[in-house]
């Protein structure tokens, strides 16, 4: 315990924010930045792919399904290696490890989030589309005004779960030496040499606290959404 406190005193800041503000931001802060940007960037893409999966146009549906299956079939590490190789080919210049990891995370997350979006849409009553189309709204208007607002609201807990999985997945950035939390801890361990137990307890505990709290938050949100759907029914019964 003493050792842990000593390590936190000497390296806590490094683990929290890396070299910042003198150098690049790193550590836990970078982990959260990676996860958040992964979620924000993959969200619009996943809505497109998720809607594409159930498109009435079979070519679009098949293409979206193929994307989802192939990405889900590959380990995140392979996607990182592919991104390392392909992104420079596309934009014509070398890119940082950070960019590589973000691209890989976004592609990976898009596939999973797209399935969340698709499931949320399919869970809505069929009558919603029929009512909207019967009023003369187009397919796109129906998606935008009727289906997605409901589906995405219902999907909030699943989306938050995806964020938790993203937080954990960012640790894989370690492999290409991006200075997020896991890599930072690895470096601290390499400097100290004799305190692996303490360092990895700190590392594991940090992830645990974050993910565990987020999990609790998801449960809370789930209950909120559940009651927001139950209340009207109760009101109707009372009426």
């Amino acid at each position: 315990m003493q050792d842990i406190i000593a390590i936190l005193r000497d390296y806590g800041l490094l683990l929290a924010i890396g070299q910042f503000p003198e150098g690049p931001i790193g550590g836990l802060a970078l982990t959260l930045i990676l996860a958040l940007s992964g979620l924000l960037l993959s969200f619009p893409l996943s809505v497109l792919i998720g809607v594409g999966r159930i498109s009435p146009n079979p070519a679009v549906a098949r293409l979206a399904a193929a994307f989802v299956s192939v990405v889900r079939a590959l380990p995140l590490l392979m996607l990182i290696f592919w991104a390392y190789f392909i992104v420079p080919l596309i934009i014509g210049q070398t890119v940082s490890g950070l960019t590589t990891v973000i691209v890989a995370l976004v592609v990976y997350e898009t596939a999973y989030l797209a399935e969340v979006v698709r499931a949320a849409i399919l869970a809505l009553p069929k009558g919603q589309v029929e009512a909207s189309r019967s009023l003369g709204l187009s397919y796109v208007q129906t998606m935008k005004d009727i289906i997605l607002p409901q589906a995405l609201f219902n999907a909030i807990p699943s989306i938050l779960n995806q964020f938790i999985s993203l937080v954990k997945n960012t640790s894989v950035a370690y492999i290409i030496s991006v200075d997020e939390l896991t890599y930072a801890a690895y470096q601290v361990n390499a400097q100290l040499l004799t305190k692996p137990v303490e360092v990895y307890v700190i590392l594991a505990a940090t992830y645990f606290i974050i993910c565990f709290s987020l999990n609790r938050l998801v449960k809370l949100v789930e209950r909120r959404i559940h009651t927001s759907r139950q209340a009207p029914i109760a009101a109707e019964a009372a009426a």
Partner: peptide, 20 residues
């Protein structure tokens, strides 16, 4: 088809109001 449908009112057994 959208213009056609907008000129025909349709009322469903299950109402299908937009709950949001």
């Amino acid at each position: 088809v959208n213009a056609l449908r907008s000129g025909i009112g349709f009322v469903f057994q299950q109402f299908n109001l937009f709950p949001h």
